[in-house]
Nucleic acid binder design. Structure first.
Lengths: 227, 227
DNA sequence: GGCCCGCGTTGACCGGAATCAAGGCGCCCG
DNA sequence: CGGGCGCCTTGATTCCGGTCAACGCGGGCC
């Protein structure tokens, strides 16, 4: 399996040239890096931490479109305005590029555009899965699917960073608070809370503190997520 | 504005070479070209007609992930299995390619991969808009948004084919029946029917026959779609 | 270590859309 | 032009999840 970091598609010298275009930047939890509707001037590679990509209705209800983990590429290439907001869910470290400079560089390096294409197709697959969830699944199924997806993606991010084995994690801290889980799953915060407690009482998961989760019965969770 | 057909990104000789890889094929309405979960062996360019891309839950509820119009590229590159079903909503004419042959050709032609990237990013934008709809909007807003989007995309497809001006159409035939609109908007068929009748009684649209729609008050429809 | 703020949980109630159940009627066929 | 099938509409009822409201409690801060 190839690395998930897009710049690894490049030869070492090209990678170094790209590195010179970018600059490392840190932001504290809660910072919004890009607002929906504003000029799309930057794109970024997420080095550490977790970002949310979100959009909202005119009357202020928010929907999280996706969550980015370390090694993910973030930003909308080839569009003058950003169509979603990008916010740090944890302290984050990103490698920022000027969108236009990055685009020009990509034009010169087909391998990079190829990697971006594969990455974007994977994002599209995830969006499709989320569409099925939001359109056709119950609250329980959505929360179960969220937990399973999170455990998988945290494991992948850890793998990309530290060379773990990519097996899903059974015990982890939620990078999202209850409201954010609600925004991701298209539910109300109370429904998220009730559903998590229901899983807890059923012995499917364990909850400790506000953020810690342990998956105790992955198979049952998967069954619930299917329906 | 560049053409929306991806092969127009190529120089004439390359376009001809690509043409030799593909073959034109017609299918009657209702044909499923690709099943979800089966080997992903083909990709295609839609020449005429309308396709739906859909996925379903274990218990059989369907969600339409997107609808493809003439000039759209369809299929999942770089994945061994198809993640969604592709079905003809009308009689269609497509230019079919072997997925692997197309991929190899794209590797040799960076301009094609670039066009595919832009196309995929546009698909992702549409999926994001649909996520906001399904997660956070009422039945009325979803149906209104569907009608507006359809009128826009039918106009674009007509533009790509016949050189129209790309202005949204106010009068058109629905390529989808009520059940398919329900599957696209994540609603029940009865809710779709009731909502359309409500718009009709309010004078926002006119309905004639089963398929014909005329948008009479686009501004009001847009307001409803926003909420 | 105690206090307090804000996130999370729980309960009561409500409402929008799903579901269940009949008809109506457009449209294709003979 | 008439019949009948299948799509569509309409109505009655249910129920899931949203909303409103109050309380609990974890964890940060003094």
């Amino acid at each position: 399996m190839r690395s998930r970091v897009i710049c690894n598609a490049l030869a070492p010298e090209a990678r170094e040239a790209l590195g010179r275009l970018g600059r490392i930047q840190r932001y504290p939890r809660g910072t919004t890096l890009v607002w929906e509707g504003e000029d799309s001037r930057i794109v970024a590679n997420l080095l550490s931490g977790v970002l949310k990509l979100s959009s909202s209705t005119a009357d202020g209800k928010e929907q999280i479109l996706g969550v980015a983990y370390p090694s993910d590429f973030v930003g909308r290439l080839f569009a003058p305005v950003a169509s979603y907001r990008v916010t740090a869910l944890t302290d984050v470290e990103v490698c920022l590029f000027s969108r236009t400079a990055f685009e020009a560089f990509a034009r010169e390096h087909p391998a990079l555009e190829h990697a971006l294409l594969e990455h974007t197709l994977a994002d599209l697959d995830r969006a499709h899965a989320q569409l099925l969830d939001l359109g056709r699944r119950s609250a329980s199924a959505r929360v179960a699917a969220f937990l399973l997806d999170l455990s998988q993606r945290l494991a992948e991010a850890r793998c990309a960073a530290a060379g773990g084995d990519g097996q899903p994690l059974d015990s982890f801290d939620l990078p999202l608070d209850r409201q954010q889980i609600a925004d991701l799953t298209g539910l109300a915060i109370e429904t998220v809370s009730r559903t998590l407690q229901k899983f807890h009482r059923a012995g499917i998961i364990a909850l400790a503190g506000r953020r810690h989760v342990e998956i105790r019965d992955r198979a049952r969770l998967a069954t619930i997520a299917e329906a």
